[in-house]
């Protein structure tokens, strides 16, 4: 069957978890410390290049009446700055470059990771989503929390600890509230990291599983081949959903970072 001829190599290759495999491209690093440039590094690099190219074309010839690219860049700029200003107020604007980079980096990683792999490429060049790895999202979350802690103590001194004891709570309640607040503060980086990682991971997993159903059903032959249309349509719908999720998760990560930074600036809210 012709279908088999086309589909077999892909079927043989595609386990649903293979897409998350880290594959080295160039070896790098010292003895005992493997810093190889991998497919993950490659897609981080592509994301950064695309983001920078976009910003380059948006700012190439800045004009009072913006062109198309400049208008798009300004829209992104205003979107992030409105988000940050809305949550932290004007004194939070010093974090604008960080939040902007964070949002755009995660958005690009999420979005570009949805790009379908061109068939026939070797594994190290398959499309990869760096944000589907918990170590990456955890690192970004810890970076945000580190900034929060450093800014919090630098701006408020020990007053930053008021964050754990909301004003107006009666003293007996504090014995209950303070541990809860501490636990919630400590769980912030974890929830940030796991939310982004799990969404990316699950989305890509479902896409690949449904694609696997399409291939399996199509490979059966006879009338059953026709049933392959259902997981295919399902995959189309999920793909559209994943585009939304890719944007939404970048937005959620950025706005939660803004809220935590607001805590650092005004712990006695």
């Amino acid at each position: 069957m012709t279908a088999d001829f086309i589909l077999k190599p892909i079927v043989a290759f595609a386990g649903p978890l293979d897409q998350f495999e880290i594959v080295p491209i160039f070896p790098f690093g010292a003895e005992g410390l493997d810093l190889a440039f991998t497919n993950s590094s490659l897609w981080m690099m592509i994301s950064v290049i695309v983001a920078c190219l976009f910003m380059f074309y948006a700012t190439r010839s800045p004009q009072l009446v913006p062109g198309r690219m400049q208008a798009a860049g300004e829209m992104l700029y205003q979107f992030v700055s409105d988000m940050l200003r809305g949550v932290t107020g004007n004194d939070g604007m010093k974090f604008f470059p960080y939040i902007f980079t964070l949002f755009l980096f995660i958005l690009m990683c999420n979005m570009l990771g949805l790009w379908p792999t061109i068939p026939g490429l070797p594994h190290e060049l398959h499309t990869f989503t760096p944000t589907s790895h918990i170590i990456v999202t955890l690192a970004l979350a810890l970076l945000t929390i580190s900034i929060v802690i450093i800014t919090g103590f630098a701006q408020n001194g020990l007053g930053f600890l008021k964050l754990f004891a909301p004003s107006g709570v009666p003293l007996p309640m504090l014995f209950l509230i303070v541990p809860i607040e501490i636990i919630s503060f400590l769980s912030r980086p974890l929830s940030l990291a796991i939310r982004l990682f799990a969404n990316m991971f699950a989305g890509h997993l479902i896409l690949k599983l449904f694609a696997g159903f399409v291939v399996s059903l199509a490979g059966v032959g006879g009338l059953i081949t026709g049933l392959a249309i259902f997981p295919l349509l399902g995959n189309v719908a999920i793909f559209l959903l994943e585009i939304l999720v890719a944007f939404l998760q970048a937005y959620i990560f950025a706005i939660l970072s803004c809220m935590y930074l607001a805590d650092a600036l005004h712990p006695d809210h």
Binding site: L35, A36, T38, S40, S41, T101, F105, I135
Partner: peptide, 16 residues
Amino acid sequence: TYASQLFWLAVFFGVM
């Protein structure tokens, strides 16, 4: 793979 991912994340995020 953690060391490599963290290293290149730092590099590219830093550059960006």
